[in-house]
């Protein structure tokens, strides 16, 4: 993939830059939107679960708990949502000019990752405000980030390619994402789940990622090595399979789109 994209790295850069420009053109507050979305979701959940339902999840502030969950989720849903229609929506490019097709969904992953990084800066601010002690375990965030990006990329490529053939994918993905939201421990903790369902939920790599992002930052604990090894292997294999299929069927995109 790196070799294939190297010749087109400028095109990828320009695509990312274009998406960035388009997104914030004719907006009044521009990049602040990147922070506004996760922060407002976090505030909403804090209000509902803290004030309305009065449940307790963990022994640390709701604000941190929800923000840590909302942030990776916003990135994942943003990237995949962009990807679904990225190829079919750019059909005038796809049917006219050749370039590696993955560039368009990848630029969506990249642009959402930029937003994610801005959101992450706010997260670190919150950790400081709530006086969470910094530990070496913070460095576990890096492999978790790689997993998150790789997983989002795989799902984005798959949805983008399938939507070229069947527009049903666009319609299905909207509510599938809603399902996935509840299958990911954004508004609950996996510790509260019965053991029978835990294994099922861990089939979703996002469960592992979100849960451990809280663990290594707020709780300052490390990740169990065999668990991350297994999840990482799963995500890498998934990515390789999907990328292989994508490059094989992309040559037919112009004919079926």
């Amino acid at each position: 993939m790196i070799h294939r994209l190297y010749c087109y790295k400028d095109l990828l850069l320009v695509f990312i830059w274009r998406e960035f420009l388009i997104r914030y053109k004719q907006t009044a507050i521009g990049v602040i939107w990147a922070v506004l979305q996760p922060v407002s979701l976090m505030l909403l959940f804090t209000f509902i679960f803290g004030a309305v339902l009065q449940t307790t999840q963990k022994n640390y502030p709701y604000v941190l708990f929800f923000y840590a969950g909302v942030l990776p989720w916003t990135f994942f849903s943003g990237a995949t949502n962009f990807a679904v229609t990225s190829l079919s929506g750019n059909f005038n490019l796809v049917t006219k000019i050749y370039f590696p097709r993955e560039i368009i969904p990848l630029s969506g992953v990249a642009i959402n990752f930029l937003d994610y990084l801005i959101g992450l800066a706010v997260y670190f601010l919150l950790l400081l405000v709530y006086r969470v002690p910094l530990t070496w375990n913070f460095f576990w965030l890096l492999p978790l980030l790689i997993m998150l990006v790789l997983y989002a990329t795989s799902v984005s490529l798959l949805l983008a390619a399938l939507n070229v053939y069947y527009r049903d994918v666009k319609l299905a993905s909207t509510f599938l994402l809603q399902f996935l939201f509840f299958a990911t421990p954004v508004i609950y903790s996996i510790d509260a789940v019965d053991n029978r369902w835990k294994m099922l939920l861990f089939l979703n790599p996002l469960t592992f990622i979100v849960e451990n992002m809280r663990r290594v930052t707020i709780e300052g604990r490390g990740i169990i090595l065999w668990q991350i090894a297994a999840e990482m292997l799963g995500v890498i294999v998934l990515y390789l399979v999907i990328y292989q299929i994508f490059t094989r069927i992309e040559r037919a995109f112009a004919d079926v789109i």
Binding site: R18, L21, Q26, K96, I97
Partner: peptide
């Protein structure tokens, strides 16, 4: 391929962009 002029143009971007 100048198959269709301006296939990659975006209306919100300036000429230079």
């Amino acid at each position: 391929p100048l198959i269709e002029l301006g296939a990659g143009m975006h209306p919100d971007l300036t000429g230079l962009e």
